[in-house]
């Protein structure tokens, strides 16, 4: 069983929104498009997005950290949005675990959005159907693209490589190793949705300075000093080599 997913490294994300704009750019003209905007240049701009970057402040001044938090559909392994759909438009693909909406079947009842605790689904106000992240399903299998480009647009766009993409059911994949070795976690585990997407935690990078880093304990000068010195009456090297 394959379960494609994103792993997002909060320690690396700088909150630049490149994933948001590249996602919108690809998906508004791809199979999922258009992702309509309402009043984009007016007073109350609004629009359909698959991916948003939010920002949180953790701690209290002066001991605070800024956490940039990219948020999109988590492609849950037990997605609560799928069984509630009355038409079958919302479905989870058996072959790769991607949760998708069939825009031709969706009746726009919004029940799936109510059934998603993460708020990952957005109704397209122009098309009146529910939309959500597709993991760029129309790119990742496209053999017309170079192999290195067969990744979701957000992953390719991330300037800090904060977004990893792969199969979390393959223990040797980059994403599985990252989850395993860097403390990857799921959001809102209390609801048993088993999100496929994982997040890597913020980690404090500290320079730890040890005594032996400043002064080598095996300093050859000191080691030499410990060697037995020749007595003053014995011939020195100079006595041997100069005549």
């Amino acid at each position: 069983m394959t379960q494609l997913a994103l792993v997002i490294d909060l320690n690396v994300c700088v909150g630049c929104h490149a994933c948001v704009t590249s996602c919108k750019e690809w998906n508004t003209q791809g199979e999922a498009g258009p992702l309509s905007d309402q009043n984009p240049y007016g007073k109350d701009p609004s629009g359909t997005f698959f991916n948003r970057v939010q920002t949180f402040e953790v701690g209290q001044f002066p001991d605070t950290q800024t956490v940039h938090f990219p948020k999109s559909c988590l492609h849950c392994e037990d997605p609560p949005c799928v069984p509630v759909c009355p038409t079958g438009a919302s479905h989870k693909r058996a072959e790769d675990g991607i949760v998708l909406v069939d825009y031709d079947k969706c009746i726009g009842c919004k029940y799936c959005a109510w059934a998603c605790p993460y708020g990952a689904r957005e109704l397209d106000e122009a098309q009146k159907v529910m939309k959500k992240c597709t993991l760029c399903v129309d790119r990742i299998y496209d053999v017309a693209l170079a192999e290195r480009d067969r990744k979701p647009a957000c992953v390719l766009a991330c300037p800090t490589s904060a977004r990893l993409f792969g199969d979390i059911h393959d223990p040797q994949s980059e994403v599985s190793i990252a989850i395993r070795e860097q403390g990857g976690y799921a959001l809102m585990p209390e609801w048993g949705t088993h999100p496929a997407n994982h997040y890597l935690p913020r980690r404090r990078t500290e320079a730890r300075v040890r005594e032996e880093d400043l002064q080598r304990f095996d300093n050859p000068l000191k080691v030499d000093g410990l060697l037995p010195k020749p007595a003053t009456g014995e011939p020195a090297l100079d006595d041997v080599t100069s005549w």
């Binding site: 007073k43 109350d44 701009p45 997005f49 939010q54 956490v67 708020g119």
Partner: peptide, 28 residues
């Protein structure tokens, strides 16, 4: 059962949102 701590997975009693990713509102 859910809190901001479980929502973003950061264990700290003081978390405040500073941006939600859109200025003019959204479907959410």
């Amino acid at each position: 059962l859910s809190s901001l701590q479980t929502a973003i997975g950061v264990k700290h009693p003081h978390i405040a949102q500073k941006a939600q990713g859109a200025m003019g509102g959204s479907f959410n």
